[in-house]
């Protein structure tokens, strides 16, 4: 270690620790993608960032768990027979998560995707061993994982609470079935909203526009299809255009919760609509990113 020549305009000295080239083994693209995954999750949750960046994600996640705590409280306080009637089942809890999921989609997804384009980081990724495909897969993975925080995990949390209070599933087979259904439902919801958010964030580099667009799309499509269905003139399948409610409808079919299902629409149509929206979003993202020029 040597101190180099002092800076001519100040007393400061550059402390020189030298440089070592790296000749060791290098990890493949998979590890690089994992690094993007980790960085995205950290960014979205405001980790290693100032306090104000933590508020929205923490508040949203909080909203997702509060009802679960309330239901668990009810289960503790009330006798099992009454509690069983009163507390939400797993399918309807996914419905209760809507607000948290909409907020999360609107404010967290654009943060993960749009900022890379405005910050120049996307260009630096493209100059690295990663290509567009690697990048998008890593981003998608991080978003689905983040979505689990407000879809899958709250319901698993609820399940654990119910089981502790003896109103959960009985026996191993039952438990496995319920856990499986919850995981499938979490995936249905997470993939759908992650892709929807990615599509919106692909169309604009402005985070604000993407957030506003997502909220307007989810709420607007719900109101529009609701009005049309209520008026009685529209066919039942119009209700599937309620994008915020569509994955929930698919989930009710996973749990066979017929009460919450859209009347007059078959499971096939519901799942088809879900897959169709996902496919359109994938197309928007892939096409948008393929066209995106990295000039600088």
């Amino acid at each position: 270690m040597t101190a180099s020549t002092p800076h001519p305009s100040s007393d400061a000295e550059i402390f020189d620790r030298g440089y070592r080239s790296y000749d060791g083994p290098r990890n493949g693209v998979g590890t690089g993608m994992f690094s993007v995954f980790v960085a995205s999750v950290q960014r979205a949750l405001g980790l290693r960032r100032k306090f104000r960046f933590k508020i929205v994600p923490v508040a949203t996640i909080f909203i997702a768990y509060v009802p679960a705590l309330v239901f668990m409280g009810l289960a503790v306080l009330l006798p099992a027979e009454i509690a069983d009637e009163l507390v939400a089942d797993y399918a309807s809890y996914f419905g209760l998560l809507s607000i948290a999921v909409i907020l999360f989609t609107a404010f967290v997804v654009p943060e993960v995707l749009s900022t890379d384009r405005t910050s120049g980081l996307f260009g630096m990724y493209m100059a690295s061993p990663l290509n567009r495909g690697h990048y998008l897969v890593a981003k998608f993975g991080s978003l689905v994982s983040l979505m689990f925080l407000v879809t899958l995990f709250p319901v698993l949390f609820l399940l654990v609470g119910y089981m502790v209070n003896d109103i959960g599933p009985d026996g191993l087979i039952d438990t496995i079935e319920v856990v499986g259904k919850i995981m499938l439902s979490g995936l249905i919801m997470s993939v759908f909203f992650a892709l929807l958010g990615m599509a919106a964030s692909t169309l604009t580099t402005r985070k604000g526009f993407a957030s506003a667009g997502i909220v307007m799309l989810l709420i607007g499509s719900g109101v529009m299809s609701g009005v049309l269905v209520e008026s009685g003139d529209a066919p039942a399948w119009v209700a599937l255009f309620n994008l915020g409610g569509l994955p929930f409808d698919v989930i009710t079919r996973v749990f066979d919760a017929s009460i919450d299902q859209i009347e007059g629409v078959g499971t096939f149509a519901s799942v088809g609509a879900w897959a169709g929206v996902c496919a359109v979003c994938v197309a928007i993202v892939v096409f948008g990113y393929r066209r995106l020029e990295v000039t600088k």
């Binding site: 790296y22 290098r26 990890n27 690089g32 690094s35 910050s119 120049g120 260009g123």
Partner: peptide, 23 residues
């Protein structure tokens, strides 16, 4: 360009890019 992620610490950014290059 001089655009870099604003709220990322220099060390985090440099380490991240190094990891992507296989370190």
């Amino acid at each position: 360009h001089h655009d870099l992620p604003d709220d990322v610490a220099a060390q985090d950014l440099v380490r991240h890019i190094a990891q992507i290059h296989g370190l």
